[in-house]
């Protein structure tokens, strides 16, 4: 564990708390892509299978995994049942097959071992890299976002961004590199670049998140 990794994880944690706060206080999931949230549930369930196989890493690791699985399922519940009328499927139209299919194929080709657990782990890494796309697509389509939603996305993007110095640190401290995680992580972080540009130049200057027409 190094400071970048810790800050990254805390940022991930913060992003989920911001999202929950947004849904609870506005009593609405307007502007949030159900598809992206559903993909995160798939990502966490397929990646954290090791929880049930007895591979113990640390209390921190287990607690975080349980939190991510629990909170992502809870968010789906809020969106699908509790605040269902506030979700508009007509603007959440990204085809998730285009993300799940290629992720599965990549996982079958590029993995560390031909076992179910390792293939699902690789699948979860590839899927996470692109899971934000329905959300970004929705943002692009509507051209604007509530400020709180942009803070959620910024925290989520910061989490992935912070994993990069973490990997550089690990390379120098333990000589290890996880190529699957690194390549997928770079792609994932890259997807946020446009968003971050608008976030820094508009939202953090006190303006509304609006895309030029």
């Amino acid at each position: 564990m190094n400071v970048f990794r810790l800050l990254g994880d805390l940022s991930h944690l913060a992003s989920i708390l911001i999202l929950l706060h947004k849904i609870q206080t506005t009593r609405s999931c307007r502007g949030i892509s159900f598809k992206t949230q559903a993909l995160y549930v798939v990502v966490f369930l397929t990646r954290y299978l090791d929880l049930f196989l007895g591979d113990w890493v640390s209390l921190y690791n287990t607690a975080m995994k349980l939190f991510f699985i629990g909170s992502s399922c809870y968010i789906l519940y809020l969106m699908k049942l509790r605040f269902r009328p506030t979700h508009d499927p007509a603007i959440d139209t990204f085809r998730v097959e285009y993300l799940v299919g290629p992720s599965l194929i990549l996982a079958l080709i590029f993995n560390y071992k031909y076992t179910l657990v390792e293939i699902l782990w690789a699948f979860s890494i590839y899927l996470e890299a692109v899971a934000i796309m329905p959300q970004l697509f929705m943002l692009q389509r509507t051209g604007e976002a509530e400020t709180i939603t942009t803070h959620y996305l910024a925290a989520l993007g910061a989490y992935r961004g912070l994993y990069i110095p973490n990997w550089i640190y690990r390379y120098f401290s333990d000589g290890t590199v996880d190529p699957i995680a690194v390549i997928a992580g770079l792609v994932q972080t890259g997807l946020y670049l446009d968003f971050f540009y608008v976030y820094f130049t508009r939202v953090l200057q006190g303006q509304k998140f609006e895309l030029p027409a």
Binding site: R47, V57, K65
Partner: peptide, 10 residues
């Protein structure tokens, strides 16, 4: 470099 053993990242 080596690939880390197991997956300790989240």
């Amino acid at each position: 470099f080596e690939v880390p053993e197991g997956h300790d990242e989240l």
